[in-house]
Simulated scan of single mutants.
Amino acid sequence: MEKHGKTPEVVAAHDNIETKQVYRVLNGEHSSTISVIYAFAKGLGVKPMELFDIEYQEI
């Protein structure tokens, strides 16, 4: 969200999900479903797969 300059409120409003649900997912208190991932991506204006584009670092 920071990368795209959007707040949890903006992401939630874009696809009619509750702001508290966004915070629960971000804090690891709620598991993400495909519909939530899609809503996040839509709110951020990115493809859902971009949410999983993370760098892997071996320990």
Rank of each mutant, 00 (worst) to 15 (best):
S32W: 12
L51Y: 05
A41N: 14
G28Y: 09
R24Y: 06
M1S: 03
T19P: 05
V22T: 01
N27K: 10
E55F: 14
I34G: 10
T7P: 00
V46H: 04
A41S: 15
M49Q: 15
E2M: 00
A39H: 05
L26V: 05
G43C: 09
S31C: 14
E18D: 06
A12N: 02
P48R: 09
A39G: 08
E2S: 04
M1Q: 01
S35K: 15
D53G: 12
A41D: 09
S32V: 15
E9G: 05
E58Q: 09
Y56L: 11
S31Y: 15
N16I: 02
G43A: 06
T19D: 05
T7I: 00
G43N: 04
Q21N: 12
T33L: 10
S31K: 15
E18Q: 08
L44P: 04
I37S: 13
A39T: 04
N27L: 04
P48N: 10
P8S: 03
Y56P: 07
A41G: 11
K42W: 12
I34E: 11
Y38P: 06
K20P: 01
G43S: 09
D53W: 11
I17V: 04
Y23H: 08
V11S: 00
N16D: 05
I54L: 13
E50A: 14
Q57A: 14
H14Y: 12
V11F: 00
M49K: 14
N16F: 09
L51N: 05
E58D: 08
K42M: 12
K6P: 01
E29Y: 11
I34M: 15
K20R: 10
S31I: 15
Q21F: 04
V36I: 15
E2V: 03
E18V: 10
Y56F: 14
H14E: 07
T7N: 02
G45Q: 09
Q21D: 09
Y23E: 02
P8E: 00
T19Y: 09
G5S: 01
Y56S: 13
L51A: 07
T33I: 13
M49N: 13
L51R: 09
E29F: 08
E55K: 15
L26F: 07
A13D: 04
L51W: 05
P8F: 03
L51H: 09
E9F: 06
S32Y: 13
D53T: 13
K42P: 07
D53F: 14
T33E: 12
K20S: 08
V22E: 00
F40R: 02
Q57R: 14
L26W: 07
G28I: 04
V36A: 14
P48W: 03
E29I: 07
V22S: 01
S35Q: 13
N16C: 06
L44D: 01
E9N: 06
N27V: 03
N27Q: 08
Q57H: 12
I37Y: 09
E50S: 11
F52T: 11
Y56Q: 12
H30Q: 14
V10C: 03
E58M: 08
D15W: 07
M1K: 03
E2W: 02
T7V: 00
P8T: 02
L44V: 04
E29Q: 12
Y56K: 14
I54N: 11
K6E: 00
I59N: 12
E29R: 13
V22H: 03
E55V: 13
E9Y: 10
K47T: 10
E50Q: 11
F40K: 02
Y38C: 11
A12W: 00
A39L: 10
L44E: 01
Q57D: 10
